[in-house]
């Protein structure tokens, strides 16, 4: 932020003659800037506003005034039916279970592997890291059929095991943790080891506590990733009792509801599925932002 203020300070002493014209132009560009910001702000936010508004409408009202964010009359019928007429509570429970297990697994296994790849000298380390980088390039959508095949073969298709275990580690998370551990000074762990702590002990009680920022980033990314995960649940389970929220939502939309479009209900269910990620986003925004901009710096 300091560079930004420096810039405007440096730009201020303009040649005296051209100042008025320059001020005029600055004002015009500022007005234009705000206009662009507000226009796109609406484009990006208004769909969510419409979603909230219409989830509280009656079905005829939603069909007649889709653009209006204000329900007239305001009804909770959509939400009542979400909880009484669909399997939403079940999906919510499954999603919570999957998300908690997957997040715990990823944070633990990814940091173990990231630490080993960054610090421990073992045969095949380079080869293994190359494999991790290669795995990161495998596009998830081509794994749909392959994953089904292996789950089927292992006899864990259509089970919580099949829903959770394949997601317990991810290459991108290993990569993030390795990068972080490489930035930690070696001297701290060397001291701990000379004091006689074993490798795991050093990792667990010396290195890991220092890795808090990276662990928070990884926790958030894992939470968001597994909460939103759709294709995996599509090919790992079939039994409606094992559906997660995205899977249940997709099922709801593809017409298991019966008559009518039932948009208030669908929008409400989608809204409820979005809220946890939205809350995490608002609280931990800088960790999301950091991850995305680091992608750019790597390039």
């Amino acid at each position: 932020m300091t560079t930004l203020t420096d810039r405007s300070a440096a730009a201020a002493p303009a040649p005296v003659g051209g100042r008025r014209a320059r001020d005029g132009r600055a004002l015009a560009s500022r007005v234009l800037g705000y206009a662009v910001l507000i226009f796109f702000g609406l484009v990006f936010i208004y769909p969510f506003v419409i979603q909230i508004g219409n989830s509280l409408k009656t079905e005829p009202d939603a069909a007649a005034n889709p653009l209006s964010p204000i329900p007239d009359p305001l009804v909770l019928a959509g939400f009542e039916r979400i909880f009484a007429g669909t399997n939403f509570p079940l999906w919510l429970g499954n999603s919570l279970l999957v998300t908690v297990l997957v997040t715990l697994g990823r944070v633990f296994f990814d940091s173990l592997a990231g630490y080993a790849l960054a610090r421990l000298r073992f045969h095949g380390r380079r080869w293994l890291f190359a494999a991790v980088v290669a795995v990161m390039a495998v596009p998830p959508v081509v794994l749909l059929i392959p994953k089904f095949l292996v789950l089927n073969q292992l006899g864990i298709y259509n089970s919580y095991t099949g829903l959770v275990v394949p997601l317990l580690a991810d290459a991108a998370g290993i990569f993030i943790m390795k990068q972080f551990f490489e930035s930690v000074p070696v001297s701290v762990e060397e001291a701990a080891r000379i004091d006689g702590a074993g490798v795991f002990r050093t990792f667990w009680s010396v290195v890991l506590p220092m890795a808090k920022p990276a662990l928070i980033t990884l926790t958030i990314l894992s939470f968001q990733g597994s909460w939103n995960e759709f294709p995996h649940s599509l090919v790992s389970v079939q039994d409606p009792d094992l559906f997660t929220l995205p899977r249940g939502l997709a099922d709801l939309v593809s017409g298991s509801l019966g008559k009518g479009t039932q948009y208030p209900l669908k929008l409400g269910a989608a809204l409820l599925a979005t809220i946890p990620v939205a809350v995490i986003f608002v609280i931990f925004q800088r960790y999301f932002v950091r991850d995305a901009s680091e992608g750019a710096e790597k390039g």
Binding site: F44, Q51, N228, K266, L267, A270
Partner: peptide
């Protein structure tokens, strides 16, 4: 900045439901 970025972190399925409504015949 947050407003522009927020759609990227939401569930693709949930967002698709919203856009189904936006692009419905009598939609927004």
């Amino acid at each position: 900045r947050s407003a522009f970025y927020f759609p990227s972190v939401t569930s693709s399925v949930a967002i698709s439901v919203v856009f189904l409504f936006l692009f419905a015949n009598s939609g927004a």
